[in-house]
Computed example of a mutant assay.
Amino acid sequence: MIVSLGISGLLTRAATAALRTLAPGGRGRWERENYAGRAVELYAGPAAALAAAVAAGRVRPAAGVAVAVAGACGAYDDFAGTGDPRRGFRAHLTALRGGELTSGAVKLFGISAAGLLAGALMKERAVDKVLAGVVIAGAAHAVNLVDVRPGRAAGTVLALAVPGLLREGPAAELAAAATGAAGAVLPDDLGERAMVGDAGAHALGAALGAAVVAGAGRAGLVAHAAAVVAAAVCGERVSALAGARG
């Protein structure tokens, strides 16, 4: 567990520093305006996604793939979806029916597919495989939903993952992968110097979901699947109301 925690935390900081130095595509590409109009950096999100994927992958390769895909889909939205006013699954699915593949649709299908694949590889029984996939993909989405103010996404992951460190085996190791990355980005996130963006939020959520899957039985999977589905439904309603008012 200590190794997973260290790999995740240290690699997040190292990758953040490397991206800040290299700034692929120019520094302007890596800057955004936050809710308060302050300029913040996006380096921490992809760095946390990479670190959490590496740390999770050494424990459960399927979990590492799910985290990596969630981070990649989130990064695509961060950089390709900038300025798209559409929010919620319904809006993106409506656009898809009209022949437009939005960055939100890429996230929806990419993260869902990766979550279901990871769940299928991490569990043995068919029902558990599906429930596990819902938990991993749903957790990725749920953490992204709370990422509306500095520190919300990373803080939520820490609050939910730290108790998992008290478990044993793969569940604790995967919880450590999520904890290390979230803890590494939290100070800059809270200080409004950086934001984790969709890349970081989705990847950290997927790592958290994988930790739950690794340690949960059927009853636990049902409870967590119900929770993330409820969060998605609530988020969809909020998005719909915001769109109607906008």
Rank of each mutant, 00 (worst) to 15 (best):
V3F: 13
V3M: 08
I7F: 02
G9C: 04
L11C: 10
G26K: 10
Y35S: 12
A36T: 14
V40M: 11
P46Y: 12
A47D: 09
V54I: 15
A56N: 04
A56T: 03
R58I: 11
V59I: 12
V59Q: 01
P61I: 05
P61W: 10
A68I: 06
A72M: 14
C73P: 03
G74Y: 07
A80P: 00
A80K: 12
T82M: 10
G88I: 06
L93T: 09
L101K: 05
L101A: 15
S103F: 10
I111S: 09
S112H: 02
A114E: 06
A118Q: 02
A118T: 05
G119N: 08
A120W: 15
E124A: 15
R125K: 15
L131Y: 10
A132Y: 14
V134Q: 01
A137I: 13
G138I: 14
N144T: 09
V146R: 01
V148W: 01
A153Q: 06
G155N: 06
G155R: 01
G155P: 01
V162R: 12
P163E: 11
L165A: 04
L166N: 02
L174R: 11
A177P: 01
A178T: 02
A182Q: 05
G191V: 00
R193N: 06
A199R: 07
G200D: 05
H202W: 05
L204N: 00
G205K: 03
A211N: 13
V213T: 10
V213S: 10
A216R: 11
A216K: 07
A219N: 11
G220E: 04
V222A: 13
H224P: 00
V228S: 01
V229P: 09
V229M: 02
A232Q: 14
V233E: 01
V233H: 02
C234Q: 11
G235Q: 13
A240L: 14
L241K: 08
A242V: 12
